[in-house]
């Protein structure tokens, strides 16, 4: 694998990758200036490098599935409790490049979601909105779609303005367990709108993959009044 041609190629890609030593780089750039064919080859490899990098870049902006966040954070359940440093949820969200959040991390009992036995469970204002809210009601924490899955479980989408979060949670053992969580910023008009019209695409995708029957307003109210059983 050390034919002169391969060495040449190795030199070209090392140049593209910024791996040449300064002296070699100077020499190589001089050769490129004198040899348009070489310069063209370098340009092709540079374009390839950018294209490959660009093809996977969108993954960084996707929502991290809550189960992964829960796995990463779960070790806190076994270890000693986090040092009591409370960080607002929005700050944690901002610190993640992706803008997706959860896990207990530095938030022993703060925030709208806590990690319990590997599941992300809604608490506080979010939990009560999921239990008692209706899609038709305005509010800072709003419920959008309500669905009944094939295994007769209720799932609801939510958007929480104070937490800057949106997601999908399902009723399980008397708790609301988050299936998808993503950062969400309320638009100027959204306080006057019902949820759903500006549900983030990740949440809609989670709803699609869940399947199940959406409930109309009458069925939604009836399910709530029966305590989601």
């Amino acid at each position: 694998m050390t034919s002169p041609k391969d060495d040449r190629l190795a030199m070209i890609i090392a140049h593209v990758d910024g791996e040449l030593q300064p002296a070699d780089r100077t020499r190589f750039e001089a050769e490129m200036a004198a040899d348009p064919a070489l310069a063209a080859q370098v340009a092709r490899h540079r374009a390839l490098a950018q294209r490959v990098n660009g093809a996977y870049a969108p993954v960084l902006d996707e929502g991290v599935p809550p189960q992964l966040l829960a796995v990463a954070a779960a070790a806190n359940d076994r270890g000693r409790p986090a040092a009591g440093r409370l960080i607002p949820w929005a700050a944690v969200a901002a610190s993640l490049v992706v803008g997706v959040v959860a896990g207990r991390m530095a938030l022993p009992d703060a925030g709208p979601l806590v990690s319990r036995d590997g599941a992300l469970v809604a608490r506080g204002q979010l939990a009560s909105a999921l239990s008692t809210g209706l899609a038709s009601q305005p509010g800072v924490v709003k419920v959008g779609l309500t669905l009944k899955t094939a295994d007769r479980r209720y799932c609801r989408t939510f958007q929480s303005a104070p937490d800057k979060l949106a997601g999908l949670a399902c009723r399980q053992d008397g708790r609301w367990v988050a299936r998808t969580v993503t950062t969400w910023t309320p638009s100027a008009q959204s306080a006057y709108r019902t949820a759903g019209s500006d549900t983030p695409p990740e949440v809609l995708a989670a709803v699609d993959s869940l399947g199940g029957q959406p409930l109309d307003a009458v069925a939604e109210r009836a399910a709530r009044d029966k305590g989601w059983r």
Binding site: V59, L60, L68, N76, G79, A82, L96, M105, A106
Partner: peptide, 14 residues
Amino acid sequence: MHGLQRQIVELLPR
């Protein structure tokens, strides 16, 4: 310990 978990969470996208 806790610092490592936080760094792992931050690495999740990559």
